[in-house]
Structure formats: structure tokens, C-alpha cells
Design a protein around this nucleic acid. Sequence first.
DNA 1: TCTCCGTCTGAACGTTGTTCAATCCACTAA
DNA 2: TTAGTGGATTGAACAACGTTCAGACGGAGA
Lengths: 200, 200
Amino acid sequence: MARDTTKRREALRDTLTDLAEAHVRADGLASLRARTLAREAGCAVGAIYNVFDDMTGLILAVNGRTFGRLGKHVSDAVAKVADAPPTERLVVMAIAYLEFASANPNLWRALFDVEMSTDRDVPEWYMQELGRLFAIIAQPLAELHPDPEPGEIDLMTRALFSSVHGIVLLGLENRISAVPRERMEGMIEFLLKRVTQTDA
Amino acid sequence: MARDTTKRREALRDTLTDLAEAHVRADGLASLRARTLAREAGCAVGAIYNVFDDMTGLILAVNGRTFGRLGKHVSDAVAKVADAPPTERLVVMAIAYLEFASANPNLWRALFDVEMSTDRDVPEWYMQELGRLFAIIAQPLAELHPDPEPGEIDLMTRALFSSVHGIVLLGLENRISAVPRERMEGMIEFLLKRVTQTDA
DNA sequence: TCTCCGTCTGAACGTTGTTCAATCCACTAA
DNA sequence: TTAGTGGATTGAACAACGTTCAGACGGAGA
């Protein structure tokens, strides 16, 4: 009984997450409607709240999947050039990040548009996943700086990620300025090569 | 008569903008309520719509002011070191940007959190103001690259602004990681010096 | 078959932004 | 002075939102 209930709930959880993901992908975060989801899932509105704390909880479930795919996309890309020089690997990762964001703009934006302010605790898997991503970035940097000061690698990791993130963010946002893709790649490559070059 | 009406409307416009600005500054964009503003302004809810198209219109009015102050803050900062080397001027501007964002986090965030998607047209002054800011950045870059390829300066301008913006954004956001201010300044300075150094 | 208890339901609640019929008011013409 | 007029202002009403909870429901044990 208890088991049966649990299973049904998990099934509903998955169904709702699927549906929500489809909506976010197609029309963005703001298009999520509790009633629409319930209708599509064939359940009551209240059922959503048996399975998620909140609409925010549902969004976090979607973001969890997106985060996983993003991480995999970047990992896979860098795995293909595992024996390339560190800087090139960083460029490959950054371009992979751009690719993912560009291919899934709404899902990607949703990662950063959830309001974390009211939520007391950022989910632990969120930080874990972010940590994993940062670790991937940190590795080539560590190779470039074999004898770093304490915290230096971590700081450079954040700085580089933030920079690339900023470029992708503003590049994809302003469809009015519409920076072409190859230009964005050029910007990223230029930036990373400059920043990571070791002093003679 | 017509004049009188116009004056009253302008006065209401200003009052509402003042109130909205105070709310955004204190509690963020999401805390704006049409009814609250009307009560505080001593007018009817409907009156807001005599003066603004939309709540979004009101937010844009607030953002207009913020944009102006941001521009002035950056301009003033760079004016004080007008005869410093280009790279140093870029650093000063970026730090000024960080200062402003850090001192007015909610107003600053509001600049980017307005949904431009449904709005057909981004207001022209928005693009103007952005253009002005970009022009300030472009000047030191032009000095560094006296013989640029077409569009190169513009692209570097965007890249640098986006990067600094990304660093400020993620640095201020994650109060969990809480990158200290001096560290952020260090990151920005490091980045800009590396990126802008001319090849030997 | 009859309880009983946990599960699920969906009408109802409180808040949103936005609208528009009704009211008001300043001014003119008789 | 008063009746008429037309634009400006009002605020109750509307539609849509996320969220809740009293009650309907249904399977397991006596």
C-alpha cells in the first residue's frame, strides 16, 4: 500500500516534470500554469502539491535535469579533446556551454531565473552539480598553474565561468544586437586565450 | 485646461516613479504592487494606467533613472583618471560598475529583469543609454588598437562588458559563496589587464 | 459487509494586473 | 445663475494566478 502510493507519486512526479520541461523548453519559465499541468497530467490541481512543495519545487526538478544535461554536454565535449593543451580544453568547454545555452535557451535561462531569495536553502544537489562543473573547469587551470596560491584556482575558475556566462547571457539575450554565433565563439576564444596565457 | 491636465499627469508620473523606485530599491522588483502604489500616491488604481501603459512602463521609468545614474557613476569615475593609461581606465570603469551594482543591487538587477520578450519594442532611450555606456568603454579600447579591423572594437567592447557583467552578476548573486569585494576587484583587474594587453 | 484511515479531489480563497461603466468637475453658452 | 457638455478620474468588477483544506473516495482488515 505504502509502496504502491509511493510508486504512483513517483510516476506523477515524473509526468509533471516531463510536462513542465516541455512547457519551459517551448515557451519559457513564465508559461508554467498549475491548472494546465494538472489537466495535461490528468490529475487534480491539488495533486501537484502532494508531490511538490511548490511550483518552485517543480521548476527545481526541471532545472535538475537541465543541469545534468548541461554538465554531460560539457564533459563529453572536453572528453573528446582530453589530451589537448589546457587552454584549448577550456575553450572547448566554453563553446560547449554556449552550444547548450543556444540550443536550449529557455531551459538554460530557467536555471538562473528561479528565485532563490525566499527559499531558505538552495538545494544541496544544486551546489553539488555546480561544484562538479567548477571542478571540470578547475582541472586545466591547475595544469596551467602548478604552484598556485591558496584559493587562486578557485577564484580563476569563478572568474572565467562568470565571464563566459556573461558573454553567453548578453549575446543570446539581445536579439536586437544579434551577435552572430561565430563572433561569440571568437570572443570566447580570444578571452580565454588571453586570460590563461602564462607569463613568460 | 489641457495644460493643467498634462501638468497633473506629469506630477503623478513623477510621484509614482519615486514610490516605485523606493520599493524596488528596498525590496526588489517583485515587491511592486499596483494597489500599494495607488494608496501611497493618493490616487485610484486606474490612475496609474492613465499615466503608464503598464506596470512594465512604470518599471521602465524607474530603470531609466537607474540607467542614468549608473552611466554618470561610471563616467565620473573615469573622468577622474582621464589621463591614465587605457587599461587602467577600463579597470576604473569596471570597478565603478561593480560599485554601483553592489550599492544598488535591487535597482541594478531590475535593469535586466524586465521582460522584454512580449514588448515589441525596446524603448529607444534604452538603446541610446546602452550605446552611450558602450561608447565610453570603446574609447580606451580604440586607443589600444589604433588600427582595428572593422567591428573589432565593437566586439571587444561587448565582450569586455559582458565579462565584467557576468563577474558582478554571479559575484553578487551567490551570497552563499560570498566572494569578498576585494577578491572581485582582483578578478576584474586581472581579467582586464590580461585581455587588453597588446601583443609584443 | 461494515468500518476505518490515508489519499486525492476540486471548489473556494486571497492576491495579482488590468479594464471600463459610472461619476465628477471645470468650463461654456444661454 | 444655471443647464449642458465632454474629457479626466474613479474604484468596483473581472479574469487568472498559486495555494489550501474540508470532504469524497476507496482499499484493507474485522
